[in-house]
Amino acid sequence: VTLFVASYDYEARTEDDLSFHKGEKFQILNSSEGDWWEARSLTTGETGYIPSNYVAPV
């Protein structure tokens, strides 16, 4: 399981994006799509795309 933590807050801009807060942890589901990764929030359980430059490895 690949875990990352949010370095910043992010507000979703499309329905496919995932909003999150600094400190929130994610399981990365797919990182092969470039700068936007499909992730599941371990806080909310929601799945969506997050900007990879807003998160760091745990």
Rank of each mutant, 00 (worst) to 15 (best):
S41Q: 04
A56T: 15
R40E: 05
S7T: 15
Y8D: 11
A56R: 14
I28F: 03
S7F: 14
D35G: 11
E46P: 00
S7E: 15
A6W: 01
T47P: 01
D16A: 14
S41A: 06
L3G: 04
E11K: 10
S52A: 13
E38Q: 13
S52I: 07
S31R: 12
W36A: 05
E11L: 10
G34H: 11
W36M: 12
T47V: 14
S31H: 10
F4P: 04
L3V: 13
D16S: 14
T14F: 15
L3T: 08
S7R: 13
Q27L: 14
N53Y: 11
D16G: 15
S31A: 13
W36D: 02
I50Q: 00
A56S: 13
S41H: 06
G23Y: 05
W36Q: 06
S41T: 03
W37C: 03
A12G: 11
A39L: 01
W37Q: 02
Y54C: 13
T14E: 08
S19D: 04
D35Y: 14
W37H: 03
S19N: 06
D16P: 04
Y8Q: 12
T44Y: 02
E38R: 11
A6E: 04
L3N: 06
L18M: 13
H21G: 08
V1K: 13
F20L: 06
D35N: 09
G45S: 05
W37T: 02
G45K: 04
W36G: 02
Y8M: 13
F26Y: 01
S7G: 09
H21P: 05
L42Y: 06
N53E: 10
A56P: 04
K25I: 15
P51R: 06
N53M: 11
V58H: 08
T2G: 12
S32D: 11
W36N: 05
E15Y: 09
E38T: 10
H21T: 12
S52G: 07
L3E: 10
G48E: 00
Y54H: 08
T44S: 09
N30C: 10
T44N: 05
T43R: 12
D9S: 08
L42A: 05
K25Q: 12
S52N: 06
A6D: 03
D9K: 03
T14Y: 15
S41L: 07
A6N: 02
S32T: 12
D17Y: 14
Y8V: 09
T43G: 06
V5F: 06
L42T: 06
L29C: 08
